[in-house]
Write a protein that binds this DNA or RNA. Structure first.
Length: 210
DNA sequence: GCGTCGATGGCA
DNA sequence: GCCATCGACGCG
């Protein structure tokens, strides 16, 4: 892609590629979480855009998954998780960090993928490893809760990326989730420099293709 | 490099 | 009372 770069990193918004469509998101969270690795997340604003390659995700697989917010039921906070796939679910944790998730599957089946890490593109040298930092640096706030990624200025590019070598591990910060706490639903690109909190003990056998 | 701890506010 | 977190601080 031919791009004009912003001095601090980022590129002209007009150079953004096509958005992934509903079909991509209307599938189980685990599959979407794997296939999001290597894809490019874009947030356009004021004629410019920030692009980042996704390197780490986590799947939350529905009301039966005790780590999934939707397991608490359909509340004001979890409402968008019950919408059809492709919407942003953004919420606040620990009083200061916004978590950016993408709702997946069909309406009524509350699954979502938490975007945990990415690498800045277009000369953008931000630290996007960790969900709190990623959302903050990409300017993703609760204002975008419920946004439709198939139509919004926030979206994932359809551009084909080389399929990364995928590692799986247990999810972070879900020790309370009883028999779900060790489920291998965190996925990461093994070629990525560093992944947030990937302890050796957490690693499951490497995998190859989404 | 690693363990511990506090910040800070929404939520059930 | 708990968090799908992060950064500062103390080690030695």
């Amino acid at each position: 892609m031919k791009t004009t770069r912003h001095p601090k990193g980022g590129a002209l918004a007009s150079d953004a590629g096509k958005k992934l469509g509903r079909g991509f998101y209307a599938r189980p969270a685990e599959q979407v979480a794997r296939e999001l690795l290597g894809k490019v997340l874009i947030h356009r604003k004021n004629g410019w855009m920030r692009r980042a390659r996704i390197v780490e995700t986590e799947a939350y697989v529905g009301v039966d998954d005790l780590a999934c917010h939707a397991s608490k039921g359909r509340t004001q906070r979890t409402e968008v998780m019950f919408w059809r796939g492709g919407h942003a679910y953004v919420y606040l944790v620990y009083g200061m960090y916004e978590m950016f998730n993408i709702v997946t599957s069909v309406a009524g089946d509350a699954q979502a993928v938490l975007i945990r890490g990415a690498m800045g593109l277009d000369g953008w040298d931000a630290d996007l490893l960790g969900p709190g930092k990623l959302a903050r640096e990409m300017g993703i706030t609760r204002r975008l809760n419920g946004a439709d990624l198939t139509k919004s200025e926030l979206f994932v590019s359809k551009t084909r990326a080389p399929a990364p070598r995928i590692g799986a591990a247990k999810r972070v910060g879900v020790e309370y989730a009883k028999h779900w706490k060790d489920a291998p639903l965190r996925f990461y690109d093994q070629a990525s420099v560093r992944i947030s909190k990937v302890g050796k003990a957490l690693l499951i056998a490497p995998e190859t293709q989404p």
